[in-house]
């Protein structure tokens, strides 16, 4: 069984970056300087994850998983602070009032007090996967004007995502959905055949989620071994969130190997993606780094 490793989503900021952000907020550091530091920190992350099969930008400059999209797409504004899922982490609730294109090129430099600073992604010399919030999840976790319908909103965002992925030069796109909602999979299908989708949903998947779609995903990441077969039925590379992003206990290489052997023995899968069960920003940086190291060793 072929194993590919994957690190995605918001990765915890280092103490240095956190403190520099604090200085920036107090006016003690310029935006230009902060941008340089963010790039350096992202380069360090790419070094740290050397050997990991697939990575996204670590999103150090994303204040939450919706923020850069909410700020860069016309028709979306920022609302009040809301609890993110079932955690002690918060996000600014997007307020969806209409649909439109990008307000500016999200891959270029841009200033926003609410999310300093853009570009959305920086990849240096690394091949990265673009990651975006699922349009349906974003719609469901936003305050939405009754006149904006889910399908139009979703179609519009997917078009924007596809364009940005093309600019990065990535055929595959990671769609992150905290919890799969009604019609979510059907909506994602509208991205078209040109791009492969890696679907990450810490909330899990169910058989009925795929009832009305023929889309073959590039990969579907699940957090339960029992869902792997379903993921395999609908994707070329099913994946398992084997590292716990909500606990500081660091898994051992032996534990992971044992799981992988058990999966291999079922004979269902030809290949598997090994990753974590949510993005790592819920962990202290030192623990996240140790978990990445374990993943590298498994690789």
């Amino acid at each position: 069984m072929e194993v590919t490793t994957f690190v995605y989503g918001i990765y915890p900021r280092s103490d240095r970056l956190r403190l520099d952000y604090g200085r920036f907020e107090r006016g003690l550091l310029t935006s230009e300087k902060l941008k340089t530091i963010i790039k350096e920190e992202k380069d360090r992350f790419y070094d740290l994850t050397d050997g990991i099969g697939m990575v996204t930008d670590p999103l150090f400059n994303w204040y939450d998983i919706f923020r850069p999209v909410a700020l860069s797409v016309e028709g979306i504004n920022l609302g009040p602070l809301r609890r993110y899922g079932e955690t002690n982490t918060f996000y600014r609730e997007p307020i969806i009032a209409g649909k439109g294109g990008l307000r500016f090129n999200a891959l270029s430099d841009h200033e926003f007090n609410e999310n300093p600073p853009f570009p959305m992604f920086y990849w240096g010399s690394r091949n990265i996967l673009p990651i975006f919030p699922s349009p349906v999840a974003m719609y469901n976790m936003s305050f939405t004007d009754r006149n904006v319908n889910l399908h139009e909103f979703s179609e519009n965002l997917l078009e924007i995502y596809a364009k940005l992925a093309d600019e990065i030069g990535s055929k595959n796109i990671v769609i992150f959905s905290p919890k799969i909602g009604e019609h979510e999979i059907e909506e994602i299908e509208n991205i078209g055949p040109k791009h492969g989708i890696i679907l990450v949903s810490p909330g899990g998947i169910g058989k009925s989620d795929f009832d009305n779609t023929s889309l073959k995903f590039h990969s579907i990441i699940v957090n339960n071994i029992r869902d792997l077969e379903l993921a395999a039925n609908h994707s070329r590379m099913p994946g398992l969130g084997i590292l716990d992003a909500h606990n500081t206990r660091v898994e051992t290489k032996e534990e992971i190997k044992k799981h992988v052997e058990a999966i291999e023995n079922t004979g269902i899968l030809k290949n598997i993606v090994l990753t974590h069960n949510d993005y790592m920003d819920f962990l202290p940086r030192s623990i996240a780094d140790r978990k990445v190291k374990i993943l590298q060793e498994v690789n």
């Binding site: 915890p12 900021r13 103490d15 956190r18 952000y21 604090g22 907020e25 204040y63 939450d64 602070l81 002690n88 982490t89 918060f90 996000y91 500081t248 206990r249 920003d281 819920f282 962990l283 202290p284 940086r285 030192s286 623990i287």
Partner: peptide
């Protein structure tokens, strides 16, 4: 035990113990 800070929102962090 404290292994480090965990984000609450924006650039606000708290020490989450194990």
């Amino acid at each position: 035990e404290f292994y480090g800070l965990v984000r609450s929102f924006d650039n606000r962090y708290y020490k989450k113990g194990s």
